[in-house]
Design a binder for these strands. Structure first.
Lengths: 349, 349
DNA sequence: ACAATATTTGACACCGTTGTCAAAATCATA
DNA sequence: TATGATTTTGACAACGGTGTCAAATATTGT
C-alpha cells in the first residue's frame, strides 16, 4: 500500500506551522525564524515531500523547466550538451524538456516567432538552451526576446550581448591546433570548413589563417574546402584535397566527423596517416578515439556547456530582461593523439 | 506590444459560451452541439489559444508529459529513439522530458524505487519510456508499477507482458544476417556479444546459433567473444578473434560500434575487408555508412520505436493498470553494404 | 399537450501552490 | 512602561483549468 504523495498541508501540520511558512522555507525566503525553518525542513525530509511543479508554476512565476531547442540532425555534439543540461537541471529540481524545430531557412521572422510560441505556449520554460544551428540565428534569438523567454546561446562570441552565451575561444583553439601542425614542420596544410550558417565555421577558419600568417605561410585558397560537419562532406573534401600537387602534408578538418571522413579517404587511397598526412579534427567527440589512428583534436567541454547554460538560466529566473552580459568562455584543450606527426623532411620542402 | 496569452475565459467570451463548454471541446468530450463545437474551435484558432499545461495537470489527472529515462552513456541508439519520441509528443501537444539515472547495479529494489520517485515526484509523467539498460531491469519496471506510472519498454520480447513494449524480432534478425554470411559461403563465423545485462545480447546470440545449426554448422565457443557494445570492446574482441587458426572468414559483431572496432583492427592488421574477412554489425546506426568499407548490418527502426512508445503511452493515459499486452514488433531490415562478400574458395575449405 | 426521459449547458468548488496583506509578536526608543 | 518601528506569521484569494452536479433544453411516448 503505497503512502500518498504528501502535500504542503501535511508538512505544515507535522511542523505545526502554517502552509505559507512551509512555502517560505521551501523557497528560501527570508522572514522565517531559524528554529521554525529547521523544524519545517525536518518535516519535509521525514515525509519525503516534494512540491508539485504544476501548482507552483500555475500560481508562481516560474515553471521549473528548461527547454532545449534541437534541430532534427542528431549529433553527439548536441547529445553531450544535453547530457550536461539534464545533470544541472536535475540537481536543481528542474526538468529538462526537449523541443524540435525544423530548419529556419526561408522562414520569416514572424513565422519563426509563431512556431516558437506554439511550441512553448502550454508550458513556458524558465529558459531555453540554444545550440547549433539555432544558436546563431538572429530571428530565433529575437523571437524569444519578444516572448520574454530567457535564452542561453551556445556558440562563439567574445563580445557582451543581451543574453547568456557560452563557448570556447574558437579562433584561439583553431590557432593552436594549426600552430601545432606548423611546429611539426607542415607547410601545406589543408582546411575543411563547416556549415556556413554556423559562426564557428568562420571563427575556426580565422584561427587557421592567423596561425599560418603568424608563421609566414600563405593561405592558399586551393587548400580550403567547404564541408557540412558530417563524415561524408569530410570524405568529399579529402577527395579533392588529396589530388593537389604538390601534395598536402596535413589537413585540419573543422570537426571530428569530417576528420574521420578525411581519414577514411586517406586510408583507402593508401596515404599513410600520420607518416604522409597529418590530420586534426575539432570537438574531441567519441569518434576521435574510435578511429585508427586516433585523432588529434581540440576538446570542447560540451557537457560543461550544457551544465553552465542550464545553471545560468536557472539563476536568472525572475530577473528582468538580461542586460548586456559578457560571454562565459570555457577552457578548451588540444588533445594530441596518433594522427599527427613530425613531417618527414623528405627532400627540400 | 505582444498580446497577452489568451485564457480559456477569453475563448469562452468570444464564442459566447461557458468556460466549461470550451473545456469540453478542447478535450473532445461528448455532449457538445456541433454548432457550438465549431464556434469554439474557431475562437480558439483566432485567438491562438493554447491551454496551460500546469493548470490542466494540477486539476486533471494527466500531466501532458512523457519522460524518457536515460543512462549516462550517450549513444546514438538512445538519441534516435529520443528523436522519435519528441516528434510524437510534439504532435500530440505533449512534452518530452529527460531524466538521468546512474546504473542500477548493486542497488536494492527499495532504493531504486525511492530514486525514481524522487525523480518524478514534482511532475508525475503520464508515462515513462525505458531504454537500455533500464528496459531490461525488473526492479525499475516494478518500481514504476508500484508508483502506478505507465511504462513503455523498448527491448526484445515476444511474450505478452504487463506493460507496453516495443522491439524487433532480434533473434530472427540475427538469424537472417548470420544466414546471409552462410549463404556467402562462410563457415568459420565469429560472434561478438554485447553487454550481458541487456537481453538483446542473448537474443542475437541465439539467432546466430540457430542459423549455424540450421545449416549444419557447429557453434565453436572459441569463435565467441564478450563485448560491451562499444568500439573499444569490438576492437579487443577482434584482436582475439583474428588470432585464430584456421582464421575466421567472417565476424558478426552484435552492434555497429563493435563492428567498427573489428573493422579498424582488421584494417590495421592488413586483413582485407571483405576479401579476407566479412563483417556484419547490428543497428544501422550512422557509423555504419561512415566507415570504409561500409557496413552490412540490420536496420532497426529506432526512431519509430520512440514514436510508437510515446504514442502508446499517450493513448493509455487514464486507462487502468495495463493488462497483459502483446509486444509491438516492428520490421527490421538487413542492409547489405560493402563489408560482406562471397567467400574466396581458396583451396578446400 | 403533458409527463418522462435523454441530452446539452453552465455554476461552482477544487487541485496545490504562491502573492498580498493584515495581524501578531518582537524589538527599539523615549 | 507606553509607543512606534520592525520583523515574523498566517488567513485568504488567486492562478487556469477540470470534475461534479444541478438546471435548462430537446426528445420521446402516450
Amino acid at each position: 500500500m503505497p503512502s500518498k504523495q504528501p502535500k504542503m498541508k501535511d508538512v505544515a501540520a507535522l511542523a505545526g506551522v502554517s502552509i505559507k511558512t512551509v512555502s517560505r522555507v521551501l523557497n528560501n525566503e527570508p522572514h522565517v525564524q531559524h528554529a521554525l525553518r529547521t523544524r519545517v525542513q525536518e518535516a519535509v525530509a521525514s515525509l519525503g515531500y516534494v512540491p508539485s511543479k504544476s501548482a507552483r508554476s500555475l500560481r508562481g512565476s516560474r515553471s521549473y523547466s528548461i527547454n532545449m531547442l534541437c534541430h532534427s540532425d542528431l549529433s553527439n555534439y548536441v547529445n553531450a550538451i544535453q547530457f550536461g543540461a539534464v545533470i544541472a537541471c536535475q540537481q536543481r529540481g528542474y526538468q529538462l524538456t526537449i523541443s524540435l524545430m525544423d530548419t529556419v531557412e526561408g522562414k520569416s521572422a514572424a513565422q519563426i516567432k509563431d512556431e516558437l510560441q506554439a511550441l512553448t505556449a502550454h508550458s513556458i520554460p524558465d529558459g531555453v538552451i540554444l545550440v547549433a544551428p539555432f544558436a546563431d540565428d538572429p530571428h530565433v534569438i529575437q523571437a524569444f526576446e519578444e516572448l520574454s523567454i530567457h535564452v542561453a546561446r551556445i556558440g562563439p562570441s567574445l563580445e557582451p550581448e543581451g543574453h547568456i552565451h557560452i563557448g570556447i575561444n574558437e579562433r584561439k583553439a583553431a590557432f593552436e591546433v594549426t600552430s601545432h601542425l606548423v611546429e611539426l614542420g607542415h607547410k601545406r596544410i589543408g582546411f575543411v570548413r563547416g556549415l556556413e550558417n554556423q559562426s564557428v565555421t568562420e571563427q575556426r577558419f580565422q584561427g587557421y589563417k592567423a596561425a599560418l600568417l603568424e608563421n609566414g605561410l600563405q593561405t592558399n585558397p586551393d587548400y580550403v574546402c567547404k564541408g557540412e560537419f558530417d563524415f561524408r562532406s569530410g570524405a568529399r573534401a579529402a577527395e579533392k584535397l588529396l589530388e593537389l600537387d604538390p601534395p598536402l602534408t596535413a589537413i585540419f578538418a573543422s570537426n571530428d566527423d569530417m576528420a574521420a571522413g578525411v581519414m577514411m579517404v586517406a586510408n583507402r587511397r593508401g596515404v599513410k596517416v600520420p607518416e604522409n598526412l597529418s590530420i586534426v579534427g575539432f570537438d574531441d567527440s567519441e569518434i576521435a578515439e574510435n578511429m585508427w589512428p586516433t585523432l588529434t583534436t581540440v576538446r570542447q567541454p560540451l557537457q560543461q556547456f550544457g551544465e553552465v547554460a542550464a545553471l545560468k538560466l536557472i539563476e536568472t529566473v525572475g530577473k528582468p530582461t538580461p542586460q548586456m552580459v559578457p560571454p562565459t568562455i570555457l577552457k578548451h584543450k588540444m588533445i594530441i593523439r596518433e594522427s599527427t606527426a613530425m613531417l618527414h623532411t623528405s627532400g627540400s620542402d
